[in-house]
């Protein structure tokens, strides 16, 4: 029975990973851009929410929308002002720039907030749980999972049925031809990064309220998000959710079977998918 419980916990955890992976997946899909600072941005967002909430004397829930909007704006600005300059056939500049950015963020957070663990206090929600038969699932993990599903669903609808979505898909497929239609590819990249920063800020909020966080956990989050994208299949939003769930379940089940083996098991599942199904479970493009 506890194994079933582990699976359910893993699915809920997968929602969090999917939330992380969405921004990575989107940015890679439209501009073949791997943002190595993605995890650090989530941590940065969590700290910003903490600071804003403290300054306002309000709940992190109040600070969340402020940081989401700021994050989106910063994402758009960073992409159009700096990151667009690093795009091109050679992926090296964008990798070096975002990796460097991540390291700077980690150390700036260390300098400002010290190495000690922090937590976003969102009240009783953290300890609440919903019981189904003999299973008890935390309310917060369920909210996170539902948020991920809704977010991915909305994104999918927007990409499929709106003018922006069509311009986005056209740019993802062939930016040079999209320009011929009057589509400003750099603005599309900016919008993609705005969504990416916004979703990762949301993920940061959930990480911060679910468990504690510290300045150096960003890289681990990046690796989980990246693994979710690859397991699910590059270029597939629902694949990203599936990838997150597979990763989450591997970790919780492994921990149930042998305490402390969760991370290693997650990485191993990632490697296995990479070796056996290089295009991921739902993907069509090559990695």
């Amino acid at each position: 029975m506890s194994l079933l419980n582990a699976v359910v916990q893993g699915i809920a955890l997968g929602g969090l990973y999917a939330l992380f992976a969405t921004g990575l997946s989107l940015a890679f899909g439209v501009m073949r851009f791997v943002n190595l600072a993605h995890g650090d941005l989530a941590v940065l967002a969590a700290y910003l929410i903490l600071s804003v909430a403290t300054a306002l004397g309000a709940s992190p829930w109040v600070a969340l929308p402020i940081v989401l909007v700021v994050g989106g704006a910063v994402g758009y600005g960073a992409q159009t002002a700096v990151l667009n300059r690093t795009l091109g056939a050679d992926p090296m500049p964008s990798i070096l720039v975002t990796f460097g950015l991540g390291v700077v963020i980690q150390n700036a957070l260390l300098e400002k907030y010290s190495v000690s663990q922090q937590r976003l206090d969102i009240g009783g929600l953290v300890t609440d749980s919903v019981s189904v038969g003999s299973l008890a699932v935390g309310t917060l993990p369920l909210i996170i999972l539902a948020t991920a599903v809704v977010l991915l669903g909305v994104l999918e609808l927007v990409l499929r049925h709106t003018r922006f979505g069509r311009a986005f898909r056209a740019t993802a497929e062939d930016s040079r031809t999209a320009q011929l239609m009057g589509i400003d590819d750099r603005a599309i990249y900016g919008a993609a990064m705005a969504i990416s920063f916004g979703t990762v800020a949301l993920a940061g909020f959930f990480v911060g309220s679910r468990t504690s966080f510290s300045p150096l956990v960003g890289p681990a989050l990046l690796l989980f998000g990246f693994e979710a994208v690859v397991i699910g299949g590059i270029g597939s939003l629902w694949g990203t959710l599936l990838g997150g769930v597979v990763l989450g379940v591997s970790q919780t089940v492994a921990n149930e079977l042998a305490i402390g083996w969760d991370l290693l098991a997650g990485h191993a599942v990632f490697l296995a998918v990479l070796l056996l199904r290089p295009n991921g479970l739902l993907g069509k493009g090559a990695a």
Binding site: R32, V34, I95, L223, F226, L271, L275, A287
Partner: peptide
């Protein structure tokens, strides 16, 4: 070596972590 560009970068990072 199955990965390219940014995916190679993160892939090597995962291996080191393992």
């Amino acid at each position: 070596f199955r990965l390219r560009g940014g995916y190679f970068a993160v892939g090597t990072w995962v291996i080191a972590e393992m």
